[in-house]
């Protein structure tokens, strides 16, 4: 199937389920494991990731297709993307700080973490590799962010329960058991495969 003809909604759905950026592409693992100890911060970080990826994906699309390609500067894509993301995060942080204290307290503290979150950069790289159109890239950004938030919320919920009720082998505590749980969640997500297909 030609990727250009795929409806953006299908891309959005696939990015959440079959092509979940965390569970199948392993992106954004570092903050995923570090933050998922606490459900509330997980939701905050998840919301911040959805927000940033939804906006940076189309911006990066514009930068790549309207700026880098016409001037044959494709090899600069990494630098361009990372600068776009860093600048976007910085601006948003300043705006949020001015506009709403409440929003700043819930989202603001997570924003610096996002600049180096590989999920956001991965999003930008995937939309170039998979040759999405502009609308598709918005859908993909939104879907990838949502998928990531869903995964971290699931893991945080499970970890919070486990802390109270179950005993873990000391050597496997913390990151080890979090990886095992994530593996099981990833297996559950394989159940989605075949519903929608984007490469």
């Amino acid at each position: 199937m030609d990727i250009q003809n795929v409806h953006p909604f299908i891309i959005f759905f696939a990015a959440i389920t079959t092509n979940n950026i965390l569970l199948t592409n392993f992106l954004g693992m570092c903050s995923f494991l570090a933050v998922s100890k606490d459900l509330k911060s997980s939701l905050g970080l998840g919301a911040a990731v959805i927000f940033v990826s939804t906006f940076t994906a189309p911006i990066n699309w514009l930068v790549y297709h309207k700026l880098l390609v016409p001037y044959e500067l494709e090899y600069l894509q990494y630098i361009a993307f990372i600068v776009v993301i860093a600048a976007f995060v910085q601006i948003i942080e300043m705006v949020i700080e001015r506009v709403s204290t409440l929003l700043y307290l819930t989202l603001g503290i997570f924003l610096p973490l996002i600049t180096v979150n590989c999920a956001i950069l991965g999003c930008a790289l995937f939309l170039v590799i998979r040759q999405y159109s502009f609308t598709q890239s918005i859908a993909y950004g939104l879907g990838a962010g949502t998928g990531w938030a869903l995964a971290i919320a699931a893991l945080a919920g499970i970890r919070a329960r486990m802390e109270k009720k179950s005993k873990v082998i000391p050597e496997l505590e913390g990151a080890g058991i979090a990886l095992v749980i994530t593996g099981i969640i990833a297996m559950a997500f394989i159940g989605f495969s075949g519903i929608v297909r984007i490469n």
Partner: peptide, 22 residues
């Protein structure tokens, strides 16, 4: 070769190394 085994393999590896260390 699919995704979940990556998580399991790394978890097992961390387990072995930590057990060895402790």
């Amino acid at each position: 070769v699919i995704a979940p085994s990556g998580f399991f393999a790394l978890a097992t590896y961390i387990w072995i190394v930590r057990a060895f260390k402790s």
